[in-house]
Design a protein around this nucleic acid. Structure first.
Lengths: 352, 352
DNA sequence: CTGAAAGCGCTAACAA
DNA sequence: TTGTTAGCGCTTTCAG
């Protein structure tokens, strides 16, 4: 059962006009007389005529909808980005179809295929942690599907890219820990293959270097699913904390890594910041209510979504193929709270 | 610019067949010879043929997409519900278009209109807090658009409804506070017009009654935007806490009310649970990491989404008009944590 | 077993 | 200024 919509044909019949006249009148074409327009417009309003977007899509070969592929909508960063995307998409007459990869390569491929088969006009993408092979993306892109990458970037694709200054964010967070007296700083890191992982790791290393702290590979652990799977965080955390000498602080490179590390500490009676100070990437709006309140690196997620959507729609609506692509790099902001409070001098233990 | 898809016509031309034969072969029609089928299928796979869903929609007068209207996707309850909805929608070949009302009546009307004009086959709806006039919904429903309500229900519409046992959840939460020694229990409540508000209020009142505690109207404050606007929570909380005698516990009727009340307490140095014990509805998965860890009433959001989507797709796909509607009521679960710890005896103050 | 043709709602070239 | 017609990709009578 489906509700029958009014069509142009109905109007034409009722008014004794042809469908093309009605069509033109509705679209305010110059070739239609003012009177006819008036009659048509009035009648259309009266019977609440709405053009059928499907027929339009078929005709124009575009659907006025854009796809979004992210790992998870139940992630504050992504839900905020999506809000930004929607705000500009809707204002430009596009609707938005959201797909989640749940950090699975297979699901990402399926999602992209699904969206493409639903005739989206373009796609906004933040790849899954599992994705190492990008052919499902580059293929569609090569076939002409406009794609804009945000947050987790793919280097091998030539298009607009929107992301934050991950290096700077990580550098600032790590430097903050160092300034607060921490010297042995671990890094709970995202999947090794992601662009953001590499950049954040580089920022972390540079901060250590600039403060004459030697980089220790054993202080870095990767979580292949970005913290989405608790067991991975559990394992990585355990390994980090059993290092000798023990880390006195931790920088977490992703939202779920940060919160799941806190979960780990709570479960294992590790006291923050006494046993270990913590700062991490997070876009949760509750971090100040956590125990202890959490120092974070926060991304301008809403703005990122807006920019990415604008760039995508630019490509879609440009007459000629766009060949000049830009990287939009936004700042990350550090919020300092209790979890990274200055290190307190402790009774001298066996470690020097 | 748009990437050109392969059509049935291309296949027909390449194979020297008619489009109808190809169409039938692809759909495994009985009237096509096995050999022809084989050739067509093979060639189709080879050139990666995908049927154009837009053409199909136009023909079949259905889009195989369903709309979701919720107040906010950046709300754990709704993002979890959406996951449930998507899981069944995708498995049944539907895609999902999400719209947010952001608790605004106007935006809700626009969203519904937008979705309807995008030819959705049906709609899942949880109304905004502001919505008191339901004609935008009942109109579409009367015109034949299948609608299923979830969480926040509209009584005046005859359709499937999926929600939790709000009365029970509120009753259990309030009873828990009473058992832990609290007697003067405030209720931070959602918009007065919502179904869930009335039901939760009723559960709260019944629990008081069953324990011989007199209901005091001054102990209930409504937040017209369900806690989304912090100032409303701030104002309501201030009013509640200045009552004499002061409340010793608070039951919050919605996710954002609960967390924003905690924010209020933190900002105003109100200690939980010493100054006031707290339990509230919330689907956040971080409540045990808050300070103090938060006692909550939790909804089976994912399951609700699944059920709602199944019911909607049932209506959509039923041959005859569905007239027999059901209310699916799911249990709410109470999780007890520190924020509602048993009341400690205190030095006798001026209150008896 | 296969093909020709109509039609879903709309637009646009072409005719009048 | 308006009407006729073809066509977007697909399914589906109706003919062969």
């Amino acid at each position: 059962m489906k509700f029958e919509a009014v069509t142009i044909k109905d109007i034409a019949k009722a008014l004794g006009l042809s469908t093309s006249t009605v069509s033109r009148a509705l679209r305010d074409s110059y070739e239609i007389s003012p009177e006819t327009k008036k009659v048509v417009l009035e009648y259309a309003r009266e019977i609440n005529y709405r053009p059928n977007p499907i027929a339009l899509s078929l005709k124009e070969k575009r659907s006025r909808s854009i796809g979004i592929v992210v790992s998870e909508i139940a992630n504050s960063f992504f839900s905020q980005s999506i809000n930004g995307i929607e705000s500009v998409a809707h204002s430009k007459g596009y609707n938005v179809i959201i797909a989640q990869s749940l950090e699975s390569y297979e699901r990402e491929v399926m999602s992209m295929q699904f969206l493409a088969s639903r005739s989206i006009d373009g796609c906004l993408l933040s790849v899954s942690t599992e994705t190492k092979d990008f052919t499902h993306i580059t293929d569609l892109h090569a076939r002409g599907l406009p794609i804009v990458c945000f947050d987790r970037i793919i280097e091998s694709i030539d298009t607009h890219k929107v992301f934050i200054d991950n290096f700077q964010g990580a550098y600032d967070a790590t430097t903050h820990l160092i300034r607060n007296g921490y010297r042995r700083i671990a890094n709970l890191s995202n999947a090794e293959n992601l662009s953001i992982t590499r950049e954040r790791l580089a920022g972390y290393r540079k901060a250590l270097e600039d403060n004459d702290i030697e980089f220790d590979e054993r202080m870095v652990k990767y979580c292949p699913h970005g913290g989405m799977i608790y067991d991975e965080v559990d394992k990585a955390s355990t390994e980090l904390l059993k290092q000798k000498p023990k880390p006195d602080a931790l920088f977490a490179s992703a939202d779920k890594l940060t919160t799941n590390f806190m979960r780990y500490c709570k479960a294992n009676k590790v006291i923050i910041p006494t046993d270990i100070a913590v700062i991490g990437f997070s876009n949760l709006d509750l971090t100040e209510l956590l125990s202890p309140s959490l120092s974070v690196v926060r991304q301008p997620a809403f703005t990122m979504g807006q920019i990415a959507a604008e760039l995508l729609i630019n490509i879609i609506e440009s007459k000629r193929a766009v060949t000049d692509f830009e990287n939009r790099i936004l700042p990350a902001e550090v919020f300092v709270r209790e979890s990274s409070a200055p290190k307190r001098k402790q009774p001298v233990l066996k470690e020097a």
